[in-house]
């Protein structure tokens, strides 16, 4: 993926650049808002990482300007401002996601993947499928190998979010935000407890596991043939 990172702190910029590059992404960087906006407006990127507090033109200004030019490149805001109203302000300006500093690099990578993918399939699918697991988002029915799976509403939303990001790592924090609207870190195994229940319903008794744990990061739904 081609990713533009606009960040004024050289250390953070270099860290993100090297980590993303290590994952095989093509990374372009800009040290301030004006330079970043110029690049974003003239080159096509798959995703952008934008710090909110930037010299010349701040992050909000960059995104607002991009959107007014009808450039819909997905944007993740990166910021030290973590209050909920500040998040809302950022998302309203046209950002697709919001990550509060300090963050884990795995979190950023997972979120870039999620928004870039969301952008690629503009129309939300009404049916999600991974291998023999299907999810009908309208009737809220999940089936595996033709067998109906009974899910509670919250479990359905969790599985839905995992399947929307099928093949990609979904972090614990992403799940907390998307499924529970929690913008803090719970001190108990909330996500783990729910995932284990969904696993028991979706994977137990079937020939292969579809929900995978990515140790220390999160989960991934995918069909991986053994070996």
């Amino acid at each position: 993926m081609r990713i533009l990172v606009i960040e004024d702190d050289p250390h953070t910029l270099e860290f993100i650049r090297s980590e993303l590059a290590a994952g095989g992404d093509e990374v372009t960087t800009a040290p301030d808002g004006r330079a970043g906006l110029l690049m974003a407006a003239t080159t096509d990127f798959d995703a952008m990482v934008v710090d909110r507090m930037l010299p010349q033109l701040d992050g909000l200004g960059v995104v607002t300007a991009l959107r007014s030019m009808a450039i819909a490149t997905p944007v993740i805001f990166l910021t030290a401002l973590g209050r909920v109203d500040e998040r809302v302000e950022g998302l309203r300006a046209g950002a697709d996601d919001y990550l509060v500093k300090p963050f884990a690099i795995e979190e950023l990578v997972a979120r870039i993947g999620a928004i870039a993918r969301r952008h690629a399939y503009k129309r939300p699918a009404t049916t999600l499928a991974v291998h023999d697991l299907t999810l009908d988002r309208l009737s809220q029915v999940a089936t595996r190998a033709g067998q109906r799976i009974e899910l509670k509403p919250r479990e359905f939303r969790l599985l839905e979010f995992l399947m929307l990001n099928a093949g990609r790592v979904v972090t614990r924090t992403m799940l907390l935000e998307a499924v529970w609207d929690f913008h803090f870190d719970p001190q108990t195994s909330l996500v783990e407890s729910h995932v284990s229940r969904i696993r028991a319903k979706v994977d137990r008794g079937f020939d292969c596991e579809l929900i995978h744990t990515v140790w220390g990061v999160g989960y991934r739904v995918a069909h991986e043939s053994p070996g």
């Binding site: 250390h11 860290f15 300090p102």
Partner: peptide, 14 residues
């Protein structure tokens, strides 16, 4: 302290 801590973590990750 958050900024240096973040850097510390980044270094550890690398």
């Amino acid at each position: 302290l958050r900024a240096p801590l973040t850097r510390l973590r980044d270094h550890l990750v690398q």
